[in-house]
Amino acid sequence: MTARVITITSGKGGVGKTTTTANVGVALALLGKRVVCLDGDIGLRNLDVVLGLENRIVYDLVDVIEGRCKLRQAMIKDKRLSELYLLPASQKRDKSAVRPDDLKKLCEDLRPDHDYILIDSAAGIEEGFRTAIAPADEVVIVTNPEVSAVRDADRVVGLVEAAEKGPARLIVNRLKPGLVQRGDMLDTSDVLDILAIDLIGIVPEDETVLISTNRGNPAAFDEKSRAGLAFRNIARRITGEDVPFQTFREETGLFGRFSRLLRRDGRTA
């Protein structure tokens, strides 16, 4: 078995690439897969913080590429899951420290011993993005249901196609069901109408994500978190399982809860 390399990117910053990488990585490892989460955002290191592994970093990606340490020395084993590893970015250098071929070579070295390599891409469409998609077998694009994020995602879909890494798949992150119901937010169907690529997950806005991110304990561990469930479903879809999409509704007050009881129609929520 050789690992599948999946790059998570978005164009626009702040849509949840790092959170998605961490949570999908955790969820895949919970399924018993051997996973490496690789931080491709050289100079703006974050993935270690979200995974709660910041204090264990000795060597980083750039140290491996420049030969100051062995690959194994830079890989940090997760404190909860034995088959989850982090390969942290350098915080002192910038994007020019890693070339597309360096990352390709690194992934080739990682492939034999793992099932999935998730690369957290830098925002933008420049060097960092180009490097991050170079080794990818598949590209996953994260977007938010807002016009500017979708516009950037569309640009990235085009660039991924041009780089012959397509077709990319899509995660719609931070969907607010209440706003969608009132017609104040783009719905997933509006996003898909523009982007016309396969959907691999919808993650609802969820406070537990923010809290768990700050604590370095990804929401995918949390059985009760709605977003955590969404990330676990994404992981199952990545492994090829056919998982029906959740339907999200905002239950406000007694009536909302009551109507939900009446609407129990067997769809997974």
């Binding site: 085009g158 660039l159 196609e161």
Partner: peptide
Amino acid sequence: RTLRSGQSLRHTGSVAVVGDVNPG
């Protein structure tokens, strides 16, 4: 194919696109 944001098509004659022309 679909023309996505940032993509541009110029032609001296007429153009037919079978697909969408997205914003941008």
